[in-house]
Every structure is written in C-alpha cells, then in structure tokens.
C-alpha cells in the first residue's frame, strides 16, 4: 500500500533562515498523524508543502505516490490554516457555498454537503448567521467545516484546537475519529501534549529535522518516560 503522504528529504529556507533542513515523513492511509514541535519549528511550513501551497527548495512531497504540488491532487486535500480563513461579511452558508463551488461541487451536492458538515461541527442551527456574529470557537468549527466540504481523502489541520475550550476540543477530536472511520487520513499539528496522545502516530519536528516518530507508546518506551511531554523534552533536551 502506498503511503498517503511521503515527505522525502525536504529542505526549505526563508531568506537566510533554514526552517527545514532534511525532513523525512510517511503517513499511512487512514491514520491520525500528529506533527509536534515548538512554535517556529516549521510545522506550518511543512504542512503547507503537503497541502501544495508551498514548494520545498529541496526534496519532494508525494501524495498517494504522486508529486506535489498538483492542482489535481489538491482536489482531494482539505486544509485548515491556523487562522480562520472566512469571509466575515458572509453567512456560514455563503462561505461554505463559495468554497464548495471552488471545489466544483454541483448545486445539489453543495446543499447536501453544507448541511452535513455543519451537523458534524454542530453549527447546523447557525447556518444563516453572518460570520461576524460568530464566537471564536464557532469560527474555528466553521473553518473545519469549510475544509471538509469536498469530502477530502487527506485532511490537514494546522493547530485546529488553539484557543478552544476542553469540551469543544473533545467534541472536535470525536469528530476526527468519525472522519477516520470514513477512511479519511488526518494530519494535525499541535503543541498540546495531551492531544498528541490521541494520535495514532506522531513525529517530533525540531531544528529542521524529525527528531523522532512513532506511536505515542513507542516514543514513551524508547525514552523511558511516562508522558509525551517528557519524551519530547528528552529528544529536544540537547538544545538547552
């Protein structure tokens, strides 16, 4: 079986700053993969490459064996950025309708999909509310809905639960499990350690390299620690 995402020796720099030096990563179909790392480690840069927005200076990113970036492949990828990318003057329905149109969904499909994703994120009662009137958590969920609108095979979420209360975070993770059941592959970046525990596999990104990767239990065993947080400190400790 081909890896859903295959990152091969990716390096990238912004000006003189080498954000990524030599990154290797494989994500299997149907898993929830967590990308961990301190802020500024290049998590966002890496996921943008996987999403096809950025092109690496060196190395390549394959999605299902095909090289990125490719507009064709981007049809089956859902991307949710760190900031809520929404049109605040428009209602939730109009926002979703816009993104669904961009993905080429027909009118009928759009209507059905909008209803469905809004139920998933528990916003079905606020469909015609203007986004300006949404709370922060609602906007976050609407952003999630927008990245789901075209039923992507690969869902890339950059810090999806930042600024979200524990109850809502729990319900969002439950939703991720649902997506996984439907066969979706999920790549999520986070720096919240207890979220890392919920992933099938994680990778620690630091100083431009993947320092370690594996299941949370593996990493804890390898470092002889009790929590991911401690394991993380072991791998990153040489930096202090």
């Amino acid at each position: 079986m081909k890896a859903m995402v295959d990152v091969k020796g990716v390096a990238h720099s912004f000006g003189k700053e080498n954000v990524l030096k030599d990154v290797h990563l494989e994500i299997q179909p149907g898993e929830i993969f967590g990308l961990l790392g301190p802020s500024g480690a290049g998590k966002t840069t890496l996921v943008k490459m996987i999403a096809g927005i950025l092109e690496p200076d060196h190395g390549e990113v394959l999605i299902g064996g095909q090289p990125m970036p490719s507009l064709q492949l981007m049809k089956s990828i859902g991307y949710m950025a760190q900031s809520d990318a929404l049109y605040h003057e428009l209602s939730a329905r109009e926002n979703l309708d816009f993104f669904a149109s961009i993905y080429g969904l027909k009118k009928r499909e759009r209507k059905e999909q909008i209803q469905e994703v809004m139920e998933i994120v528990d916003l079905a009662d606020h469909l015609d509310k203007v986004v300006e009137q949404y709370s922060g958590g609602m906007k976050r969920r609407l952003s999630l809905a927008a990245s789901l609108i075209h039923e992507p095979k690969l869902l890339i979420l950059d810090e999806p639960t930042v600024g979200i209360d524990p109850v809502l975070r729990q319900s969002i993770w439950n939703a991720f499990r649902d997506f996984q059941q439907r066969g979706m592959t999920i790549l999520v970046t986070t720096h919240v350690m207890d979220e890392a525990e919920k992933c099938d596999r994680i990778a620690l990104l630091r100083n431009g390299y993947v320092m370690a990767s594996g299941t949370p239990d593996q990493l804890k065993q390898d470092t002889d620690t009790q929590s991911i947080e401690e394991a993380f400190l072991v791998y990153g400790g040489d930096n202090r």
């Binding site: 096809g52 927005i53 981007m74 990828i77 991307y79 990318a85 993905y103």
Partner: peptide, 8 residues
Amino acid sequence: EKLLSTPI
C-alpha cells in the same frame, strides 16, 4: 491562503 489550498 485557504483559496490557494484549493485547486483554483
């Protein structure tokens, strides 16, 4: 950025 993550 969101738009550029779509096939547009």
